[in-house]
Design a protein around this nucleic acid. Structure first.
Length: 838
RNA sequence: GCCCGGGUGUCGGAACUGGUAGACGAUCACGACUCAAAAUCGUGUGGCCGUAAGGCCGUGUGGGUUCAAGUCCCACCCCGGGCACCA
């Protein structure tokens, strides 16, 4: 017997699959049942090599793709590298190379690793986000967003990472820490580029109900978008020193609240330190210096400090009072940093009796507390609903109804507020696509420009794209609020596309997440002929035929990053008439997290798994099968070195079993039943991504075959196909040795000409089960007394309930427990058990 | 604090709409093969009592519903993840 020589066999098939384009779909005319776009989140090649977490995700996705192909779909499973951006740049900084040079090294390394693990990738369509032919279109999308009025520049307090020396989006400032490096994020007032994602807040939220995604990701997006219904209410502000109202200038403060029903209980107002009223000093306040000092201190606080220390601070604006529009009472106005500037109007009405935070503040500053909702315990905080009190004419009204009525009563307007903020898209870094915008001073002075609100700004015309990222030696982030490109005069000096005078290019680059927000379209593009237009181009045809993606698999850590941005961009492109769908991924599944020996993998712990070592020792098949066997794919699990042995032995046993080639002449009935049960189980499990139990079912079947010592040829073929998605090399090798004369081709005749001299098992038809073959010959009935198992027996399928109960009562064990007593009750569960109660 | 997951042998994990808890692996022990070891094959492997047959206990804790609960209900504890002063 020849030992299974996996290194040679895996190398052979890797090459053959690629050479003979086994995994390339027919883009213009999909074969079989039609197209199936099977996408996995592409990796960013920032680390030393492919991470086992990547492999885990890819394998799970690949099994699904192979399964769908065998079920007759023309599967497109592309691969590429998300190599532009801060991830890769930080890695280059760390090891002291230039990111462009590093990209070349990583590219080779990653593709090599990706190839040896046995995924059915369509290699010809691969892409890298840092190639000019790719980022030309990333830039073009930026200009398109600009033309749609979805890109704008604005000065505001933004997240700044002092270590990465760039601004970050809200999504990338996780709990006040930089998503990339973990440093504490600071607030800086800077003028930056934003994408108007908030325009789509409502649609992003509503569409969640229509897409088939892992529930936890949907929940995360709902929370992040954060819709609240409430009202905007205006409070008059008056100078408390001026008694003559006619002399009093008309100041107003508008607040947002979700509880207008509690308006009678509002005993003070609070505005955020960044509120316009403060920066412009509209109000005639008497303690201006104190207030300025407080505001300056508050702005200095990092997000981290604000999150850690929730002790309320604030200062009253002396000399002014607000008028509660409901009861006309004068109430004080404070500035305090527990009120956020970017949400609602940046000002709130405080109702300490019915809001925990307001109560904390009121207690600290000795402010009034007036209960206006009946409910909860007396004199205790109550945040629920109920009938009103202390609310004049509204007393007794239910709070839900009062929300509307009180808003009307004071002339407020109902308002739906989202937590989602616009996507800050510019970065003061080097390794990214330069933002393709030009600023012309001359035009600005005369108020000319492409957008009224932003005179002087022009998008780089398509004919001049890409704006190539220049090769600069000192690419390190400067920390000045400008990108390294701002030091390269030859880069930023240009002429105005409108008037021809000297102009300056934008020197910031765009966020990495813009690169990955459209890559699923990029895979269909073939750079040379792409026009993002619904027109006559072959690309447009491919888009129509192949999009949206049929199955998307990736990590849940992107719930509010990539997965939100990509949905937003699709909606924007749809509205611009550039694509024909608004949800790019109707079906998405998040895979679980892989840990090692119960602990998270990290370099500092030294427990990072290097896939190469395992592939070398056990083969790619064994490694990928073990990854899928160790736990449910969507749950994630614990990688233990010893576990791989079980799978490795299983594959060896398959090899040996087939190598003996001891096909029986007839289909053994019980083995046939076992096979059909296995087909059913494996098919259903793969559909549900429960690969661990699918593999287990295969093991059970092989155990039975070995016990019998034989199986028929047709059984051997069917079983091998079940193994194929999990162990593609082994299955292919056995197939080519024994069965490559199959006539069950599922795709079509194009395969015959496309492949020279072999028929891949990966294009064979997936076996189907015959329900009539699943039926057992006899029933096994369990016998219980008082719910405890005492006995069991076999009986024919045709036995009546009476016969079964009699047989159960006749059981010696049962009789021993009954001890001559008559049973009180007999419960019969058809085909399963008899429970005798006494 | 809020929202999701999840707590099952020595370990990873199975268990349909409530119906034989521990599938499949790993580990360990013993046996076969071998001069020997590895590999491979076979048997056993939740705890307690018992020579055995068998019995009792057992799915985080405490209660409940039911002929029957890992599964349903109530209260609580622990672990992992997400959000967090969003008015």
């Amino acid at each position: 017997m020849k030992k299974y020589d996996f290194p040679a066999i895996e190398e052979k098939w890797t090459k053959r699959w690629r050479d003979e384009k086994v995994y390339e779909p027919d883009f213009s005319s999909p074969r079989g049942k039609g197209k199936f776009y099977n996408l996995m989140m592409f990796p960013y090649p920032s680390a030393e090599g492919l991470h086992v977490g990547n492999m885990y995700a890819f394998t799970g996705s690949d099994i699904y793709g192979r399964f769908m192909r065998m079920r007759g779909y023309d599967v497109f499973e592309p691969i590429g590298l998300d190599g532009f951006g801060i991830h890769s740049e930080n890695y280059a900084l760390k090891i002291g190379t230039h990111p462009a040079a590093q990209a070349e090294v990583s590219e080779k390394r990653f593709y090599k690793q990706l190839e040896i693990v046995g995924n059915g990738f369509a290699w010809e369509e691969r892409l890298e986000t840092y190639k000019p032919e790719y980022y030309k279109w990333t830039q073009w999308i930026f200009t398109e967003m600009w033309r749609q009025g979805l890109a704008y520049r604005k000065k505001q307090a933004v997240n700044w990472c002092p270590s990465c020396k760039t601004v970050l989006s809200d999504e990338q400032a996780e709990r006040g820490a930089c998503e990339r490096c973990g440093s504490g994020v600071e607030k800086k007032d800077l003028e930056q580029w934003f994408f108007r994602i908030t325009k789509y807040a409502d649609k992003l939220l509503k569409n969640i109900e229509t897409i088939d995604w892992s529930e936890k990701v949907k929940i995360a997006q709902r929370n992040w978008i954060g819709r609240s219904e409430g009202a905007k209410i205006k409070f008059k502000i008056q100078n408390s020193n001026l008694k003559d109202e006619s002399q009093n200038p008309k100041y107003e403060l508008e607040v947002f609240t979700t509880r207008p029903d509690t308006l009678f209980g509002a005993t003070y107002l609070v505005i955020s330190p960044e509120h316009d009223a403060i920066s412009n000093f509209q109000f005639p306040i008497s303690n201006r210096e104190e207030v300025e000092e407080y505001v300056a201190n508050a702005k200095k606080k990092s997000d981290e400090e604000r999150i850690e220390n929730k002790e309320k601070t604030g200062i009253e604006l002396k000399g002014i009072k607000a008028i509660n529009p409901a009861n006309k009472e004068e109430i004080p106005v404070f500035v305090a940093d527990y009120v956020l500037s970017g949400y609602g109007t940046g000002a709130i009405m405080a109702v300490p009796a019915h809001d925990k935070r307001d109560l904390e503040f009121a207690e600290k500053f000795g402010l009034g507390v007036v209960s206006v909702i009946l409910g909860g315990e007396e004199n205790a905080l109550y945040e629920g609903s109920g009938p009103l009190m202390n609310s004049g004419a509204f007393d007794g009204m239910d709070s839900e109804e009062a929300k509307k009525k009180i808003t009307e009563f004071v002339g407020g307007e109902t308002h739906t507020q989202f937590r989602l903020r616009d996507w800050l898209i510019s970065r003061q870094r080097y390794w990214g696509p330069p933002i393709p915008m030009v600023y012309c001073d001359a035009c600005a002075k005369e108020g000319r420009g492409e957008q009224k609100e932003m005179p002087g700004w022009y998008a780089v015309p398509e004919s001049q794209l890409p704006v190539v990222l220049p090769q600069v030696e000192d690419f390190r982030p400067k920390g000045t609020g400008e990108s390294p490109l701002a030091s390269d005069e030859s880069f930023y000096k240009t002429t105005c596309p409108a008037c021809g005078s000297d102009a300056r290019r934008e020197t910031d680059v765009s966020d990495t997440f813009l690169d990955s927000a459209w890559y699923y379209i990029g895979y269909l593009m073939r750079f040379e002929n792409w026009k993002l237009e619904i027109g006559n181009s072959s690309f447009a045809e491919r888009m129509k035929l192949w999009l949206p993606v049929d199955m998307y698999i990736g990590g849940a850590e992107h719930s509010v990053l990539h997965l939100l941005y990509v949905r937003f961009l699709a909606m924007a492109l749809k509205d611009a008439g550039l694509i024909s769908f608004e949800e790019p991924f109707p079906k998405f599944r998040a895979h679980g997290l892989l840990v090692k020996d119960g602990a998270k993998m990290s370099k500092s712990k030294g427990n990072v798994i290097n896939p190469d070592e395992y592939v070398k020792e056990f083969g790619a098949d064994a490694f990928r099968m073990y990854l899928m066997f160790l736990a449910p794919f969507e749950q994630g699990g614990d990688f233990r070195d010893q576990g791989i042995l079980g799978v490795s032995r299983f594959l060896d046993r398959i090899w040996k079993f087939y190598d003996r080639k001891t096909w029986g002449t007839s289909d053994d009935a019980s083995l046939e039943r076992a096979l059909h049960k296995t087909i059913k189980k494996v098919t259903e499990d793969i559909e549900n991504l429960q690969y661990n139990t699918a593999i287990s079912a295969c093991m059970i079947f092989l155990n039975e075959c070995e016990a019998k010592g034989t199986m028929s040829e047709s059984q051997a073929r069917a079983f091998l196909k079940l193994i194929a998605p999990f162990a593609p090399f082994l299955a292919e090798e056995i197939w080519s040795r024994f069965f490559d004369n199959e006539k069950s081709r599922i795709l079509d005749s194009r395969d015959e000409s496309g492949q020279k001299g072999f028929h891949s098992i990966h294009r064979e038809a997936w076996p189907t089960y015959d329900a009539s073959k699943l039926i057992e010959e006899t029933l096994v009935i369990v016998v219980q007394t008082n719910g405890k198992v005492r006995d069991q027996f076999e009986i024919s399928l045709t036995a009546t309930q009476k016969e079964i109960e009699e047989k159960a009562l006749a059981s010696e064990r049962v009789r021993a427990f009954l001890g001559g007593n008559a049973p009180k009750k007999i419960i019969y569960v058809p085909g399963r058990l008899v429970n005798i109660v006494f």
